[in-house]
Amino acid sequence: MTAIPILFEDGEALVIDKPAGLPLDRPRAGGRSLDDHLEDLRLGFQRSPAPVHRLDRDTSGCLLLARNPKALKRFAAAFEERLVEKRYLGVVAGLVAEDAGTIELALSKVSTQKDGWRMIPARKGKPAVTHWRVLDRQGGLTLVEFRPETGRTHQIRVHAASGLGTPLLGDPVYGSGKGGPGKGASRTLLHAAGLTVPRGDKPPIVATSPLPADFAALGFSDG
Score class of each variant (00 low, 15 high):
residue 152 R to K: 15
residue 127 P to Y: 02
residue 186 S to N: 12
residue 184 G to L: 09
residue 200 G to L: 02
residue 123 R to T: 14
residue 191 H to C: 02
residue 117 W to S: 15
residue 135 L to G: 00
residue 117 W to T: 14
residue 165 G to C: 00
residue 185 A to T: 05
residue 194 G to W: 03
residue 125 G to T: 12
residue 178 K to R: 15
residue 122 A to D: 15
residue 146 F to C: 06
residue 109 K to S: 09
residue 107 L to R: 03
residue 125 G to E: 06
residue 173 V to Y: 08
residue 134 V to G: 04
residue 200 G to P: 03
residue 121 P to C: 07
residue 115 D to E: 11
residue 142 T to H: 04
residue 138 Q to F: 10
residue 164 L to I: 07
residue 179 G to A: 05
residue 190 L to K: 01
residue 158 V to M: 05
residue 169 L to M: 06
residue 108 S to V: 01
residue 195 L to M: 01
residue 134 V to Q: 07
residue 154 H to F: 11
residue 140 G to S: 10
residue 142 T to N: 05
residue 193 A to W: 00
residue 174 Y to W: 09
residue 159 H to T: 00
residue 166 T to R: 06
residue 119 M to V: 08
residue 166 T to W: 13
residue 188 T to P: 00
residue 182 G to E: 02
residue 197 V to N: 00
residue 130 T to Q: 02
residue 102 T to A: 10
residue 152 R to V: 03
residue 195 L to A: 01
residue 155 Q to L: 02
residue 146 F to G: 03
residue 197 V to H: 01
residue 133 R to P: 06
residue 145 E to Y: 08
residue 152 R to S: 02
residue 120 I to F: 00
residue 116 G to T: 12
residue 178 K to T: 13
residue 110 V to N: 00
residue 126 K to H: 11
residue 114 K to T: 15
residue 156 I to S: 02
residue 186 S to Y: 13
residue 182 G to I: 06
residue 116 G to K: 09
residue 158 V to C: 10
residue 145 E to W: 04
residue 140 G to F: 06
residue 163 G to D: 08
residue 132 W to T: 04
residue 110 V to S: 00
residue 153 T to D: 04
residue 160 A to R: 07
residue 111 S to D: 12
residue 109 K to I: 08
residue 194 G to E: 14
residue 156 I to G: 04
residue 113 Q to Y: 13
residue 190 L to C: 05
residue 174 Y to E: 01
residue 150 T to L: 04
residue 197 V to M: 03
residue 123 R to I: 15
residue 178 K to S: 14
residue 113 Q to F: 06
residue 140 G to P: 05
residue 149 E to K: 10
residue 114 K to H: 08
residue 138 Q to H: 13
residue 193 A to Q: 12
residue 199 R to L: 09
residue 105 L to V: 10
residue 157 R to K: 07
residue 139 G to N: 15
residue 146 F to S: 01
residue 128 A to W: 08
residue 155 Q to E: 10
residue 192 A to P: 04
residue 139 G to I: 02
residue 198 P to M: 01
residue 154 H to V: 12
residue 102 T to M: 11
residue 160 A to Q: 02
residue 172 P to M: 08
residue 157 R to P: 03
